[in-house]
Amino acid sequence: MIRVVDVHKSFGGQQVLKGVNLNFTTGKITTIVGTSGCGKTVLLKHLNALLLPDRGEVLVDDIDITKLRQKELYAMRGRFGVLFQGAALLDSMTIFDNVAFPLREKTRMGEPEMRKKVEERLDQVGLEGMGYKYPAELSGGMKKRAGLARALVMDPEIVLFDEPTTGLDPVLATGIHQLIARTQQAFGFTGVVVSHTIPQVFEISDYVAILADGVIEEAKPTKEFQASQNPVVQQFIKGEIEGPIRVL
């Protein structure tokens, strides 16, 4: 269980998170939606303490990770797999080495076993035979998929996906959704997905939360969320210009 309690975060004078409260159920997928620039990535980065809140707590299994010492913090981060919005592949090494990187650095796995595992992950994201390429030689969507393979390669307990399907064609987006759902069922990880691919992402989500104006406007099981009469939710799902969310 991950619990975000009253998290505030500002950059300079800009208040991005204004008291976020949200729980993530173990072994389920929770999707966070919200307008572009509303702070979803910032919230996600608080979950494994890449950013620290100005105020509030982030509890992972009842341990406040914002107060951990360096060593415990690194151990905690080892339980997470992260797919970054921009994939964040190390561009000094090939795709294969990128995916193999956590295994090489963090485990004593032998070379043949590691090779098998990396190739399996690359197959799963549809990058078979692409391992020799460098990140700069890949399209945006391919980088995303390589980042996904890297996030899943350590079989993490908790996986954070920042927009796993943005920039992918619809067929591939469905494929990636299925991959997330399949691996989630196989390994039972706790998934946190930030996504704009609505409504398709709802099919793999157990819970959905909407972040608006620095707070969680609504967080519910997926069915209830979709049926919610909250005008913010309705406007967002339907993508309407008129409504409580102010754009442009």
């Binding site: 980065k45 494994n48 890449l50 690194y74 151990a75 981060r77 080892g78 997470f80 992260v82 970054f84 919005q85 921009g86 964040a88 592949l89 190390l90 561009d91 990187f101 956590p102 650095e105 963090k106």
Partner: peptide
């Protein structure tokens, strides 16, 4: 560039100390 493209964050998130690495 590694900072700007979140590669340093990625190292942190893989529990690898970027200063050491």
């Amino acid at each position: 560039t590694m900072r700007a493209t979140e590669q340093i964050d990625a190292l942190y998130s893989m529990a690898i100390n970027p200063i050491k690495y």
